[in-house]
Simulated scan of single mutants.
Amino acid sequence: MVRIFITDDHPIVLEGLKNVLNATDGFSVMGTCSTGKETLEAFQEKEPDILLLDINLPDINGVELCAEVKKKHPDVYVIALSVHNEAPIINSMLRQGASGYIQKNALSEIIVEAIQDVLKGGSYVCEQSRESCAGRVVKAD
Rank of each mutant, 00 (worst) to 15 (best):
M93V: 08
Y101L: 07
I90D: 12
M93T: 11
L94V: 00
V125S: 12
S92N: 13
Y101K: 07
I115R: 04
K104F: 11
I90A: 00
M93P: 00
I110D: 14
I110E: 15
L81A: 05
Y101E: 01
Y124G: 00
K120G: 03
N91Q: 10
I89W: 05
E86T: 06
A87D: 04
N85K: 11
P88M: 08
H84N: 04
K120P: 09
N85I: 09
L119Y: 04
P88G: 10
I111F: 08
I110H: 13
E127C: 02
L94R: 01
S99M: 04
A98I: 00
Y124N: 05
A114N: 03
S99F: 10
H84F: 12
A98V: 03
S92L: 01
Y101F: 15
E109K: 15
P88F: 06
A98T: 02
N91L: 10
G122I: 05
E86P: 10
E127F: 07
R95K: 15
A87L: 09
I115C: 14
I111K: 08
G121P: 10
L119N: 05
I89S: 13
L119V: 00
A106M: 08
I89M: 08
S123H: 01
I90T: 04
H84W: 11
E127Y: 11
G100K: 01
N85P: 02
C126R: 00
G121R: 06
C126I: 12
L119F: 03
Q116L: 13
L107V: 08
V83R: 10
S123P: 02
I110T: 15
A106R: 04
A87I: 01
S123V: 00
G97E: 06
G100S: 01
K120H: 11
E109F: 14
V83G: 09
E109G: 14
N105R: 11
I115Q: 04
I90P: 01
S108V: 03
S92C: 09
Q96K: 07
